[in-house]
Simulated assay, not measured.
Amino acid sequence: MSFFILINTLKLMGKGYVEMKIVRILNNNSIVAKDENQQEFVLLGAGLGFNKVRGDVVDEAKIEKKFAPTDGKIANQFMELVNNISMDCILYSQQVIEEAKINYGKKLADTIYISLPDHIANALENAKKGMLIRNPLLHDIKRFYKDEYAIGEAALRVIKEKTGVILPTDEAAYIALHFVNAEIGETKDTAIEITKIMQEISNIVKNFFKVEYNEESLNYYRYITHLKFFAQRIITRTNYPDGDDDLLNLVIKKHSREYECVLEITDFLEEKFGYSISSDERLYLTVHIARVVNAM
């Protein structure tokens, strides 16, 4: 991690508190400060920057959150964000992110500290204007990213509790995508593209076998997890190397119908993305499809 978040640490440090001086005032409630070791911090707290100037000693009692950025790009983006949105949105986001880490064991890229508060601020502004932004991938995000969607729902509860604003379930799905992005280290557009590819492959399988998925089964979870990483490989133009054709031939003999479905997927991906599936990729996809179809 290049952007560490320390929650209420200063108030717990007591006599161990290291005096800091202001080097930049972002607004009345946020400042940039340095300690005696020249370590730079972004500090949030009501009135921290009010009537202050560069060089003033930071009022320890007013510090609510302490951010210690070590990545220059992330630090600059965060300081810009702090200067343009409500501090409350940053604090709501911090709560959601920490709960996601604790409850789901998520390892997240530092970009989540920029993208999530920015999104929440925009969502609240849209709600204030009476604007409802529909999410066309709502159903698929709920299916493919159960943990992340649950985090999105938790975020809506935090926002309702803190502001009284009830955001639509579409927003839970949008927030889920921010966590997907932070897990794979990609942009929001990449996560959307991955979701669309998963949707299209999933529909090919469902229509080929004329079945409905048992979305609560372990085999479905494994299948969706495989599709997620498969879709990432398509986006990044990477592939499994060709492997043992003898093993693939055994799988084809046992699961000939499922392999026919894989060939249909192969043709689709070749036509739409110019992506050729390796023999190992076809093998793994056949096995996962066989498991999920037979579990229905």
Rank of each mutant, 00 (worst) to 15 (best):
N83I: 00
M79N: 13
S93W: 05
I90D: 04
L108G: 00
F67I: 15
V57I: 10
C89Q: 12
K66C: 11
M87R: 13
D59L: 10
A100R: 00
N84E: 14
Y92I: 10
E80I: 08
N103F: 09
F67K: 10
M79W: 06
N103H: 05
K101Y: 01
S86M: 04
I102K: 08
I85H: 05
K107R: 06
G72V: 13
K73M: 10
I85C: 06
E80P: 01
V57E: 00
G72L: 13
E98S: 04
T70A: 10
E64C: 09
C89H: 12
D88C: 05
Q95I: 11
A61F: 12
N84R: 15
N84L: 10
K107H: 04
Q94G: 07
N103S: 11
F67L: 15
V96A: 11
I63G: 05
I74Q: 08
D71P: 01
K65C: 04
F78M: 12
V96F: 05
E64L: 14
N76K: 15
N83G: 14
K62P: 01
D88L: 12
I74R: 09
K62I: 10
I90M: 09
Y104N: 01
T70D: 05
M79Y: 11
L91Q: 12
Q77Y: 11
D59N: 10
E80M: 12
N76E: 15
P69E: 06
C89L: 04
A61C: 02
A109P: 00
Y104T: 01
Q95C: 07
K62H: 05
G72P: 12
Y104L: 02
S86C: 04
Y92H: 08
N84M: 13
E80D: 15
E60Y: 03
K107W: 05
V58Q: 02
N84C: 07
A68Q: 13
K62W: 08
I90G: 06
Q77S: 11
A109E: 08
M79F: 08
N103W: 02
T70E: 14
A75K: 15
A109W: 03
V82S: 13
Y104D: 01
G72D: 15
V82Y: 08
E99C: 02
K101C: 01
I85Y: 07
P69A: 06
V58M: 01
F78N: 11
E64K: 14
K101D: 00
L81V: 10
M79T: 12
A75R: 15
A61S: 12
S93N: 09
Y104G: 02
L91Y: 05
C89Y: 09
S93K: 09
K107N: 06
I90V: 12
Q94K: 13
E80W: 09
I97E: 04
D59P: 03
F67H: 10
A109L: 07
A75M: 15
N84W: 03
T70P: 01
Q95S: 08
K101H: 00
N84S: 14
N76D: 14
G105E: 06
K101Q: 09
L108R: 04
G72K: 15
K106Q: 04
E64A: 13
I102F: 02
Y92L: 13
V96K: 10
N103K: 14
I85K: 11
V58K: 03
D59Q: 08
I85P: 03
E99D: 13
V96N: 07
